[in-house]
Nucleic acid binder design. Structure first.
Length: 407
DNA sequence: CGTTTTTGACCGGCGC
DNA sequence: GCGCCGGTCAAAAACG
């Protein structure tokens, strides 16, 4: 698990832990977490709640079948990445942006992982979606998929339903973002044109308009679902600032929960990314945010304290959250064909931090985007990581140098 | 005045 | 067919 070079840093590990702990206490950010890529975020939440007996802080997702380890058995989604944040009320969002908090993933995610991020948000179209054969192969594996998931498969849409947390997300998220998003938006545009034509013929009532708007979708095909990415955040604030601009378009009461679910849509034209925000009924301090789709544009705004446009949300003030041990095996493959397990990385028990990472992470997800940013090639930390990978990320570069000199 | 939020109505999918 | 439920729409209200 540890390479030789990594082992060389072990003598300073204890210092690193202390250093980390102090730093951790200073910024008062506790990470609990639980990030997950999934087919259906709501199901993830439900499953999480069902699994309440497992303290979130102690949740572990192993290389094994996530269903077995997480209680998600039979679920249609894959756990691909896991991690959560807890934000103390004192900090809230005044000093630390959501992205700042998400920055903790800089140490969860390997440089190799970020290599998989290299494709810019506005890059040329990504590789084509998985071939039908690949999709069908997944379908063979998935015996318990729900009907909509099957339809997605048939449509060549992303599916992460395999109980093997492998490359389905890898194939899907980075591979299909624009294609899926654009196709859906273009479909909507086509529908709009149809609707306009229909309005010319008869403009009786507003309700008729609404019906016309919705009917073409159901006639042609089932509404397509984008890949979803959900995470749980312990926060007093419902709508987390992730750098993008969102417009709320709906709110619904959640069954068996006193807290409503809010629906947001990215306000950028042509970007169909949506997100849902709701509080856990069992732990009101936990906010569950589910992203759907992928942004087709740079991060439009620059949060507190930053100046200028952040092309990829990189303008956020970097508040480096505590770092964590990153096992060598966390380094993920560039080859999306390879299966990638949702590795788990855990710090000392007192920190109660658990996270996983996968090369399937996509830069359209703010948390991961931030992680990517923090691992930019210009970062000395990044270069160090590229050299050594393990543990070094939690040890200041200077400290590592001193340690080596002592040897 | 433009943008965002609120909120009731509506739609499609699904189970019975 | 009916009812439930998640998701969406769009007019009205609120906001800056």
């Amino acid at each position: 698990m540890f390479s030789k070079s990594n082992a060389q840093t072990l003598p300073v590990l204890s210092h690193s832990v202390i250093y980390l702990f102090i730093f951790w206490c200073n910024i008062r950010i506790k990470t609990l977490g639980l990030f997950c890529f999934l087919k259906d975020g709501s199901e993830c939440v439900k499953s999480m709640e069902k699994k309440k007996e497992n303290s979130m802080a102690n949740m572990r997702f192993s290389d094994e079948n996530p269903s077995a380890t997480t209680g998600f058995g039979g679920s249609i989604f894959d756990m691909v990445a896991v991690g959560t944040h807890e934000v103390s009320g004192a900090d809230k969002w005044g000093a630390l942006g959501f992205m700042d908090l998400l920055g903790i993933h800089q140490d969860f995610v390997s440089p190799s992982l970020f290599d998989s991020f290299q494709t810019p948000i506005l890059s040329p179209p990504p590789p084509p979606p998985p071939s039908s054969s690949e999709v069908l192969l997944h379908q063979d594996i998935l015996h318990e998929q729900k009907q909509d998931t099957k339809q997605q498969l048939l449509q060549g849409l992303p599916s992460q339903a395999s109980t093997i947390p492998e490359s389905s997300e890898v194939l899907n998220n980075p591979a299909t973002p624009n294609s899926s998003s654009i196709s859906s938006s273009s479909n909507e545009a086509a529908n709009d044109e149809q609707n306009k034509a229909g309005d010319d013929e008869e403009q009786d009532q507003d309700q008729d308009k609404t019906k016309k708007l919705l009917k073409p979708k159901k006639k042609n095909q089932k509404r397509q679902r984008e890949p979803r990415f959900a995470f749980m955040t312990k926060s007093e604030v419902d709508h987390l600032d992730d750098g993008y601009r969102w417009r709320k378009y709906g709110q619904k009461a959640v069954k068996n929960s006193p807290y409503p679910r809010s629906y947001y849509r990215c306000t950028t034209a042509g970007c169909g990314v949506k997100k849902r925000v709701e509080r856990s009924s069992e732990d009101p301090t936990i906010v569950v945010t589910t992203y759907e789709g992928q942004h087709t544009h740079p991060c439009p705004i620059t949060p507190r304290g930053s100046v200028g446009i952040a092309p990829d949300c990189s303008g956020f003030a970097a508040v480096s959250a505590p770092s964590f041990v990153v096992p060598q095996r966390q380094y993920l493959h560039h080859n999306h064909q390879q299966h990638v397990q949702p590795y788990i990385y855990t710090t000392s028990p007192s920190m109660n931090i658990t996270t996983t990472a996968s090369s399937s992470l996509n830069s359209s997800f703010p948390a991961l985007l931030e992680a990517k940013r923090l691992f930019s090639p210009n970062s000395s930390t990044s270069s160090s990581l590229r050299d050594h990978g393990l543990l070094q990320d939690i040890v200041p570069t200077q400290m590592r140098k001193e340690a080596k000199e002592e040897e």
